[in-house]
Write a protein that binds this DNA or RNA. Sequence first.
DNA 1: GCTTATTTTGAACAATGGTTCAATTTAAGA
DNA 2: TCTTAAATTGAACCATTGTTCAAAATAAGC
Lengths: 221, 221
Amino acid sequence: MTKKTTEKQRLRAPSKRSIASRSRILDAAETVFARDGFEGAKVRDIAALAEVPLGLVNHHGGSKEALFREVVERRAEELARLRLEALAQAKGQGALDLTAILGCFFRPYLAKAAGSDPQWLAYARLVAMVSADPAWADISTDLFDPTAQRFMDEICALHPKVSRAVVAEGFVYSVAALLAFLTSEWRIAALASQSDAQASVEGLVAFCAAGCAARIAQAET
Amino acid sequence: MTKKTTEKQRLRAPSKRSIASRSRILDAAETVFARDGFEGAKVRDIAALAEVPLGLVNHHGGSKEALFREVVERRAEELARLRLEALAQAKGQGALDLTAILGCFFRPYLAKAAGSDPQWLAYARLVAMVSADPAWADISTDLFDPTAQRFMDEICALHPKVSRAVVAEGFVYSVAALLAFLTSEWRIAALASQSDAQASVEGLVAFCAAGCAARIAQAET
DNA sequence: GCTTATTTTGAACAATGGTTCAATTTAAGA
DNA sequence: TCTTAAATTGAACCATTGTTCAAAATAAGC
């Protein structure tokens, strides 16, 4: 399924104002979708947050579903690139262990989420939604799985004896923990009954690396 | 916030037919909520699945939100009881390690989900929804957190040196992995590119126990 | 069996929300 | 500057959906 089967050719370049509107709409959509979910999000809320008339949202984003897909796609490519770059660079510096591999997968995302652009935090919730809902399985297949496969290749190379299913299992658990890290600080703080509970990236990586290692060791016996 | 501030007293016992209708409606609501999410679920779909007229859903379940809460509450108490019983029984058989504690938390749920009642699998998706969405934080606080605290107490007793925040961190990651196990078999199978990928309970427990242990060890140094 | 609280039914209501559209404004291309 | 494609605006459309209601059917309590 290609992106657009009917590619209407443009006769003119988009104006600066049009580009700005489109960007504001996508940002607003990202925020509202992340906050309310796909069904819960209202196009009118997106329009209000973007401070544009209602009709303009459909004009730029198409249908609500098309808008959602575009919002998810927008950062997926950059994220995949950053992850693969981190992996390539780490490989250039010597042999990789499990911690290093997972670190290359986690850190680019976490760096963005902790960085200056607050939209990346909203994006994390979007990814969590897509990853959890079978209704969006095609998005996962197209945008996220290729990169995941690449990282799983590295882990499989480290442990040639174990089946890919075992590695996939550990990887899915690790991604679940990553998304929990990004979206459940309120949860951790509530359980720790102290507001200064600050989960660390190192803690997350340590958890997942040890978990994967144990799962793999279990399968190797 | 108590359950019902205006408790209208009953003058008659509910009829057998009424009890059956109510049960069918709750089962149908559980299935539809799990499949479509809270916003995506339609009261009409619930009525259709339960094979009752539309109005009867509101009559028995109250508002859509009240119905959702009741569906979540319905199994929460039984689940909490099973978990605490498993923990008590395991404690009676000697000192507990991390694997045993997590096993007591995971197994009752997994046994139910794998058991005869298919509704428990739908319930797993409901719990995942509630756990992930801050909008339902009050449900988590009321229904799930007390049991989680009890299990975290055991882990804390095992490692007196580490802060509760570290334990909470590992616990949240573990629950995330549990929910991924219950709701993401399609995901694991897709990544493993083999349909016979069968994640095991032992694999999940091994992953989480080792992960928590590593996170705690990291904090103890 | 009688009474009436409760349940059931089907319909209607009112609000919501995604989408469409014609008219207007803007600015790109020549 | 002139032409017109593209963007913007505000309104309307219409299917959807949660909720309510009055009348009819049912069955619990005496």
